[in-house]
Design a protein around this nucleic acid. Structure first.
Lengths: 232, 232, 232, 232
DNA sequence: AATGAATGAGCTTTCATTCAT
DNA sequence: GATGAATGAAAGCTCATTCAT
């Protein structure tokens, strides 16, 4: 990396000004591939293009246009189209499950906690952005198995663990009577977006579900779950 | 290798015989793009290629090779790569739900009928072939929305109607107590492959589920469903 | 490979005509990458482009234009730009030394034989085509050492062996008195184009040498060689 | 790494000192493109890169890295990659023949003088650096004829003149009997590195010749020359 | 009617050059 | 005056589609 001007003259007022400036908004020019804002700009453009067209049909020219950055610049920040996509997938994954599980914490009543969690999960998972992301990842699953596997492992699977722990806690507390908690975990997740997720994934419904639709699925699912596993 | 004209007739009378045959079963030569066997041959080759590589990564040369038909011939039967794929999707859809719903008919006991249906459905939906097909359809859902929507409408949605009718019959018979049968239909479908479908779709599990895994999911799902909706 | 029509009807006159035609000038369509005329056409175009611009500065588009063949076709015949160039180099090499050494055979007088050989060699080596070829090979010698080494080994080096054998024969016959025939071989080759080769190679002279210039160098060189090594 | 302004002055008087210095030896800051040391630094980096990779395969980034100077700076000193290369060629040329001709001066005996000169010439011309330089010049001779011509004119050709004068002196002195001194000049040069130069140029030998190989070629060449042209 | 050699637009990626800092 | 991030034209190569055979 290049040494920036280290002109540490101790008395010139110019330096004071310079230091003041550099501290907040203008920190000189960033090294190649090091500007987080530009990186973000590229990722956002790429996201729009990949989500719309899928990995293969998206061209680097499309991304160039959408990101408002030159092709050369993209290649400074990302080694290849595939690497750019990979980075994006990590973002998809993290976005997908961030903030959902905190829903468990705010509610001490079991049913309320499950409903709050179910709503957060369903809204997120059926959102345009997340649906598109998942389509892209599923679309390349055959050709890039490790990528989509890692997507699943770092995302949904981690989520399952949290839900499972929550259920086990309530089994121990005597609120629930479950033999196979792992299976119940999957069942709960699936019930919470029954009738929503697949229809969105296959594009049968091209709009995000309404609050009413979310409520119907989530409350219906949670109540069914409790009817089956709850202590009488 | 391509099958070529093997006209090893040794006499001019052969032509007469050939003409006679062409009318009924050797069919002589069919009009361009009219031979259903050749059409099928192309579709099967294309299926293998698309399922393995996805739509974009598959090349017409790959299909040519796999189908054992020349490129020109493919273009006589299908206008474009996209049209060929579209046709294939219709096949995917039909294959997906054929023969599953007959499971309802063989069993008069409710639980047995649901389990039989659940097994047939889960095995089919998590099979390599169907998983790959679904990945392809989902992968292009953003770019070709009408295709994947029609896939869903003609396939899963029709299936839902059959299941719903079955449930309603048992509600009427007093075996089940369900308020929202449409929701219950979705719930039943999802429960039957809880923990199997998504993991397969995202490639987390790259082998078809074992019979044991299928049983665990299906029986677990049906029993839960009955515990929630069954008459005490 | 596709099986061609093996319609071996033994009596139809049509087959006779077909056989007659296929035998001499129209042998059906050649397999991809198998038409020697097209291969030659590409090589000739590539030769013109590489000779004029060198390996790196030549673009596949230039070659496409010059050869009058599409890019796709070039890539059917040659796997890469480098492979095409390699093939060309083999041609350069073979062209360079073909037919030169026969000069030894026609003359029984030592001096006449050497002069005939020298002329053939000098004319060839200083010809536009060969000079350009050598420039290209020398230009990539640093980056593709095996290629230029093989060029030297299969070309000049083989030539040296022939000359050496010729000199040894005359040493044995008592016409020449040489201690180090290998060195003398190099000396002879160099003397025969003294003042011609390097000037051409570096582009100091941009026209092929005149007959007079060739004579001056060759006769001067041979006579000097004989004065030094010939029996008094 | 780039050298940066290390202006660690602690007082405003420093500026006065700096100004004073800039006049004579620290020179302060030179006008853009006027610092001969920096110019040299760039040329040396470029030399290493061009010699190794050839003109086309060398990238300005490679040169930037090797010279330790920024791209912008290079473009202040040289208008283009080609111009930089041109300048370098002049350097190649001058280096090539500097110091060789002094060999004539130290020896009064004809044979010793020729051998001393031959050794100096052969060692230089077959050295890695000079071979690589020549390859580059030859490689672009077709595309940049004036460059390589000037290379030849200012280098080898000037050398020939010196050798020719030397030979003529000895002809006049009666040591040599030569009709065509120009031809003899070329012959002498070629004989002195017979078997060395071409093999090196084409990369057949990738190591500089040993002293023994040099001796064999030079002494063999000089003796042959004297046998042919020397007074009995 | 079937073939597959040929086409060329369009792909990902590189790099000489510019110019804001 | 020096820097190196940004640019975009152009590189090598692929592949859906066409059409002479």
């Amino acid at each position: 990396m290049s040494s920036t001007k280290t002109c540490s003259t101790s008395l010139s007022t110019a330096n004071v000004l310079e230091a003041a400036l550099s501290g907040d908004e203008r920190q000189g020019r960033l090294a190649a591939g090091q500007d987080p804002a530009k990186r973000q700009q590229i990722l956002e453009g790429a996201d729009r293009v990949f989500s719309t067209m899928g990995f293969d049909a998206a061209s680097m020219n499309d991304i160039t246009r959408e990101a408002g950055v030159s092709k050369g610049t993209i290649y400074v920040y990302f080694d290849s189209k595939e690497e750019l996509f990979l980075e994006l997938c990590i973002g998809y994954r993290d976005k997908l499950f961030s903030g959902i599980y905190s829903a468990f914490e705010g509610n001490h009543n079991l049913r309320d906690a499950l409903i709050a969690f179910g709503k957060a999960l369903s809204i997120k998972v059926t959102s345009d952005m997340v649906i598109r992301s998942q389509r892209v990842v599923i679309g390349v699953a055959q050709r890039m198995p490790s990528m989509s596997r890692s997507f699943y492992e770092q995302g949904p699977k981690k989520g399952q663990a949290i839900v499972k722990a929550f259920l086990e806690k309530h089994v121990a507390a005597g609120d629930l009577e479950i033999e196979d908690t792992e299976l119940a975990t999957h069942q709960l997740s699936d019930l919470m977006m029954s009738g929503l997720f697949k229809r969105r994934l296959f594009g049968f419904t091209d709009k995000e579900p309404t609050e009413e639709e979310i409520n119907r699925a989530v409350i219906g699912g949670v109540d069914m779950f409790l009817r089956a596993y709850g202590k009488r």
